[in-house]
């Protein structure tokens, strides 16, 4: 009876089968792609605008971070829903891994935004942080991720309950998120493009910058994917070694 239970347990946490050759191709491809994006981002000539000057190059890094974070959030929500339906622990592991990597991209997005704002919008006042709706809503978004991890740590000892409760919270956050990122920032005064009274991104971005911007978005989403799949396999291996050791 006992051996059966043990095989069942290790069955649940078996690391996903990976074709290592294909994985290395994808990883190296993403790294080569990002290297080219970086070279292009710093070397290509861009139009010089007053105040903005060369800081415009931050477009290639600041904005793709949010795309990568949204992709991470979507993946986390997808696997949270999958966990609620199937109850398989592997789905829970995937949701957490995506949320962790998404938080990282969100933090980098906030920091790149702060630096950019400090030397353009707030150049004269020397502020690092001022009320801008998008900025504040992005911070709230990161607080939601933080709350998700706090909730998980509060339920540390009971993996089944922890997975279920945190998955429900994550999906609830997914439902509220459009208000944070799309509804409210468009109703309020903001210095970001696309807000009330501002021209949209598509109207003010020079074609030469799009040559780098779109590949950069794809590259950082690819980077998210590489980091996320790595974390999933590491977590699954760790869980299996815990099961073996006990």
């Amino acid at each position: 009876m006992a051996p059966l239970a043990q095989t069942e347990l290790s069955e649940k946490v078996r690391p996903p089968q990976v074709n290592l050759r294909r994985y290395r191709w994808v990883r190296n491809g993403v790294l080569a792609w990002l290297t080219m994006v970086l070279a292009g981002a710093f070397l290509l000539k861009i139009p010089r605008l007053r105040i903005l000057e060369h800081t415009a190059r931050n477009l290639y890094f600041h904005v793709p971070m949010w795309f990568a974070m949204m992709a991470a959030f979507a993946v986390a929500g997808y696997h949270a829903a999958g966990f609620l339906r199937s109850g398989r622990r592997a789905r829970d592991v995937r949701a957490v891994a995506a949320a962790r990597v998404g938080t990282l991209f969100g933090l980098v997005g906030i920091v790149t935004g702060m630096v950019w704002a400090r030397f353009t919008w707030y150049q004269s006042s020397g502020l690092w942080w001022n009320f801008d709706p998008k900025q504040t809503m992005a911070a709230a978004q990161l607080l939601i991720f933080g709350a998700y991890f706090v909730l998980r740590s509060a339920l540390g000892g009971q993996p089944e309950k922890r997975g279920r409760v945190s998955a429900v919270y994550l999906l609830f956050a997914v439902a509220v998120m459009p208000f944070l990122l799309y509804v409210l920032p468009r109703q309020m005064q903001s210095l970001h493009p696309g807000a009330e009274g501002n021209p949209a991104f598509s109207e003010i971005t020079h074609p030469i910058m799009r040559v780098i911007f779109y590949p950069s978005v794809a590259g950082f989403i690819g980077l998210f994917w590489v980091l996320y799949t790595q974390r999933v396999r590491a977590a699954a291996l760790e869980m299996r070694s815990v099961v073996r050791g006990s």
Partner: peptide, 29 residues
Amino acid sequence: LGALIARASAGGGALLTVLLFPLLTPLLV
């Protein structure tokens, strides 16, 4: 969220505040 907190009773009162406030930002604004 109250139902969630009742399941995660270890967290106590502060946990609900942490979970609730970021989600209520749009409402508050």
